[in-house]
Amino acid sequence: MENRIQNLKNQALAQIIDADIEELEGLRTNYLGRRGELNKILREIQDLPAKKRPIIGQIVNDAKKAIERAIDEKHGKLQEGTGKTKWFDPTVPGNKPQIGHLHLVTQAVEEISKTFEKIGFVRVRYPEVEWDWFAFESLNMPKDHPARDEWETFFVGTPPHSKYGQMVLTPHTSSGQIREMTRVKNPPIRMLNIAKTYRRQSDVAHIPMFHQFEGLVVDKEISVVHLKGTLDYFARSFFGPKRKIRLRPFHFQFTEPSFEFDISCDICQGRGCKLCKAGWLELGGAGMVHPQVLKNGGIDPKHYTGFAFGAGLERSFMMKSGLKIDDVRTLYSSDLRFLRQF
C-alpha cells in the first residue's frame, strides 16, 4: 500500500507540472476531493491491521499536503504570468502605530490593587499633605518621640492647626489608618491605601517622593494568623507561588505586636546570596493595630482588633520583576529611553 501511495503522489506531481489553470482545479478534485484517490485509500485503511493504520494514515496525509502545496504553487505561478498579480515584497517593514507605555509605578499600583481586591480590600485615597495628628500623634508618636526619627519628615511652612498640629507631607501611608477608621466607623474594614509618600532623603536607594501601599483590617476576632495569612497570600499571588513570607519581631509605636516582613529571595531560592540577607529580602512593616490607635480612630478596642501592613511600592515591584535599577531616581527621570522599556 505504501508503494501505491508513493506512485499516486509522483503521478500527481508530474501532472501538476504540465497543467494549465483549469486542469489544475481538475487535479485538485481528482486527488484531494472528498471522493478523490487519496481519500479512497483512507477508506481502505479499516481493513488493515490496527498497528499499521496510523502509519498508513500518516503517509496519506503527507502525500495530501505535498500535492496541495504543489497545486498552490503552480497556481501562483500561472496567475503571475497572466498579469493578474504583481510581484510583491511582504518583507517590507510595517508601519507601527506609536507604542504607548504605562509607568512602572502605575503597573505596580494596578497589580497590587487587583491582588488585594480579590480578598475584599477596598482601595481608598487620603491626603498627601496631612496634619501631624494623622501622620504621627494619633499613631502613638507624640511630639519629640525618638521613634519619629525614622521618618525624615518634610514640614509645610503654614501655621499649625490648633488641634491637629503642623502640616506635613505624609511620610508613610499609615496616616490613612485613622482617616479610614473615621470614614467607615463600623468595621469590617479592609483598606488598601496606595499613595505618594515623602521623606527628606535622596541617594541611589532613596528618593524624596516615592509610593507606599498600606493594608488595614479591623473586625471582630482578627488575630496574628490573619496578618500572616494575608501577607502569605500576597507573596504567593504577587511574587509567585514559590515565594514565602517571614515575619520578624520589630517595633512600631502604632502596632503591638509589630513585625517586619521579608520575602524569600528568588535569586538564590532562599539559600543566601549577595543581594539578600541569608535568603530573605526585607519588604515592609506590619503589626496588630495598637489599642490606642483604634481608640483614636473611634473604634472600641474591646470589641474589635485589627492588623496593618505597609511597604514601598517601587521596591516591591522591583523585587517581583527582578529588575535591578541601580538608581531609583531613574524611575522619576522622565527619560523616554528608560520609560519605553516597560
Partner: peptide
Amino acid sequence: EDILEEVARLYGYHNMPSKIMNGEIPEPL
C-alpha cells in the same frame, strides 16, 4: 498587648499557621 508580643515572638511566628480572615466583606467605596 506588650506581653502578648513577648509570648508571640518567642513562641515563634514561623510556628503559627496562616489564615485569611473570614467575616463580612466591606462595602465598596
